[in-house]
Computed example of a mutant assay.
Amino acid sequence: MKPLARYASLHGYVDLCHSFGIDPVPLIREAGLDPASLNLQDRWLPASAIAVLLERSAAVSGRQDFGLRLAEMRRFSNLGPLSLAIREEPDVRSALQMLVRYQHTYNEAVLTRLFETEGLATLRVELDFGEPLESRQSAELAVAVLYRLLRGFLGPHWKALAVCFTHRPPDSAAAHRKFFGPTIRFDHDFNGISLVASDLDSENKMSDALMRPYAQHVLESLESPKGAVIVDRVRDVIELLMPIGRCSVDQVARSLGVDRRTVHRHLAEVGETYSSILNAARVDLAQRMVGSSRYSMVEVAELLSFSAPSNFSRWFRTQFGLSPRAWQDRMQHPEDS
Rank of each mutant, 00 (worst) to 15 (best):
D128G: 00
A162V: 07
P46F: 05
Q328V: 05
Q103R: 12
Q64K: 11
R74Q: 14
A31L: 04
V163H: 09
R185A: 00
S255Y: 14
R29V: 07
V249I: 07
G130K: 07
A228H: 10
W158R: 11
D65E: 06
P225I: 03
V270T: 04
R314F: 13
E118N: 06
L285K: 11
A47S: 11
D34G: 00
R151C: 09
L16Y: 10
R317H: 04
R185V: 15
N191L: 01
R69Y: 10
R87D: 12
S337W: 14
S293E: 15
A139C: 04
V237K: 02
M1P: 08
E89S: 01
S37P: 11
F306I: 08
G321R: 05
S198E: 15
E30A: 11
L256T: 00
S292W: 15
L322I: 04
F316W: 14
H11Y: 15
K205Y: 09
M1H: 06
P24A: 02
V100K: 06
D336L: 10
R75S: 04
S172H: 07
L53S: 03
L33V: 01
V229K: 01
R101F: 11
Y295M: 03
L96G: 03
S202L: 06
M297W: 12
I86A: 08
K178C: 14
E239W: 05
H333P: 12
